[in-house]
């Protein structure tokens, strides 16, 4: 029952002449939360951006190796198709400032020119906002601008915006690093709830956070995948010395 939905094989990423991600192979289990950890600059962001092909925005980036979704090569599709199947949440909340909360949730549809009936729209918005645990807080202000919300609420709005597209996988790049502890724990609870329906890959600097919410953890160091284990195992008996040093706080 626990099949690998996404598989990375011998992935190498170069930006310009620098080798950023070095020969990484790993699989992601369906409806699991996978945490990606490692010291700053080790290539975490670069790695997960390859998964929804956002790295293609950097003209000098070059990728070798293979990533497959349900066994099919990601790089054979149009990147736009890939990004609709694999959602992304960023470090800083970034709702569209010109749009209302309602339109922000629907942005993926409206900007892609999908025409929906009023009922379909209402349904999608309500469903996504409920999944993002934001519905109760904003249901009376759906047509106000999303920028008036607090940081944590904005981040949940961005999660709702990604969920509205019904992605198979949700990539999150340090989604709580710009938030206060209360908003953080709110989002952590939300993620545990979400994994019933979607596979999550989360980059985090917060070791405690990884241990609280993730099922398995990958530890990256200088572009290499040092260790990839179930979270429980890695946090109790790390195999590699570097992982151990990181977990006890020897690198920043």
């Amino acid at each position: 029952m626990n099949q690998e939905i996404l598989k990375i094989q011998n992935l190498n990423v170069y930006i310009g002449d620098t080798h950023i991600v070095k020969d990484i192979s790993m699989g992601f289990l369906r409806k699991n939360i996978t945490a990606v950890m490692g010291p700053s600059g080790c290539g975490k962001t670069t790695l997960i951006r390859c998964i929804n092909r956002m790295h293609e925005l950097i003209p000098t980036a070059k990728v070798t190796g293979e990533i497959t979704l349900y066994g099919r090569d990601l790089y054979a599709f149009n990147p736009i198709y890939v990004r609709r199947k694999i959602g992304m949440v960023f470090q800083r909340p970034n709702p569209f400032p010109t749009m209302s909360i309602y339109d922000n949730v629907l942005a993926g549809y409206q900007l892609n020119g999908v025409s929906l009936t009023r009922q379909e729209k209402d349904h999608i918005v309500q469903d996504a906002l409920k999944k993002a645990a934001l519905w109760e807080e904003v249901k009376d202000n759906l047509h106000r601008k999303g920028t008036f919300l607090s940081g944590g609420q904005q981040q949940r709005l961005c999660i709702a915006r990604a969920l509205a597209m019904k992605p198979k996988i949700l990539l999150m790049d340090e989604p709580t690093s710009a938030l206060d502890p209360k908003a953080t724990s709110h989002i952590e609870e939300l993620l545990i709830e979400l994994k019933k329906s979607v596979t999550i890959v989360i980059v985090t600097h917060n070791i405690a956070q990884a241990s609280r919410i993730s099922d398995s953890t990958a530890f990256l160091y200088m572009g290499e995948l040092v260790e990839y284990e179930s979270t429980k195992k890695m946090f109790t008996v790390p195999k590699d010395k570097r992982t151990e040093e990181y977990l006890i706080g020897k690198f920043g």
Partner: peptide, 15 residues
């Protein structure tokens, strides 16, 4: 990040 947010939703570059 605004541009990235939109692209990550699968919105084409021109849109």
């Amino acid at each position: 990040t605004l541009k990235e947010a939109s692209l990550a939703l699968g919105v084409p570059y021109y849109r």
